[in-house]
Design a protein around this nucleic acid. Structure first.
Lengths: 123, 123
DNA sequence: GCAGTCTATCCACATCTATCGATACATCCA
DNA sequence: TGGATGTATCGATAGATGTGGATAGACTGC
């Protein structure tokens, strides 16, 4: 049923949850959002998928070219891509039968900023 | 039995697994190590603990002051601190009966570097 | 020594998650 | 229109993980 639309990828850049860890203790809500984002990175298959996508010269990679490098089944790769998409780390674009994935630099930058200890070292 | 010593915290800075994601696709071993580190960050309680430790003015926090802020039991907090310690994100120091925890900036910097897309933006 | 306190470990349990076969959906082409 | 292909979803299952009570170990002060 289309009553419940798919949850939009949470954009950390828009939230107030990206204060460097060393500056202010996290409140509970921010910690929940950040944990969700880091959870998407907490799997070797997803890290490899993200690195393949991010390192692509064209900036985009067809999903059909992602199953072989990670040596997983097509449903498994699709599941991991969904997790990365819902975490806002990648974005997808339909191109006929194929789906092309690209990295979202803003989300990666937001996570980098959180891992900083002082406010100045955050780019 | 003390035959098996506790595993040392894996130091990403010493490994060759900290190449920015956008530069080179990750090999399987590097992905495993990185996933282990990000897994430590993939829990809201651990993120809050790490932020409290990293934001401490003295640079250290007694474990006895960490149970109340996160509203978890002492065994649970001890477990999460162990995960952070084994991931190399915090270090501990015994001070009599108490144990003081401090953040490990090098490990956080290594993870930040991985989340970069281009080699120059890595500090 | 002994009681009290702080920390880590052990154990059990509920929940979450990665994985893959089967299948549905969407699109293209003949 | 029908077959082929790429992708997403469903269902089931094995393994990982968060949580806390009970308990052991370490240290302090009396």
């Amino acid at each position: 049923m289309p009553a419940t639309s798919p949850p939009p990828p949470l954009l950390l850049a828009d939230a107030d949850c990206c204060i460097p860890l060393g500056v202010d203790p996290l409140d509970d809500d921010s910690a929940q959002q950040l944990a969700h984002a880091f959870k998407a990175l907490a799997d070797p298959v997803r890290l490899r998928l993200l690195s393949i996508i991010a390192a692509a010269p064209s900036g985009e990679v067809c999903a059909c070219d992602l199953t072989a490098p990670v040596a997983k089944s097509q449903p498994t790769v699709s599941h991991h891509l969904k997790v990365l998409r819902e975490a806002g780390l990648v974005a997808s674009r339909k191109h006929g039968t194929w789906v092309h994935y690209r990295a979202v630099p803003e989300q990666l930058a937001a996570l980098r900023q959180v891992l900083a200890l002082d406010p100045v070292s955050a780019p």
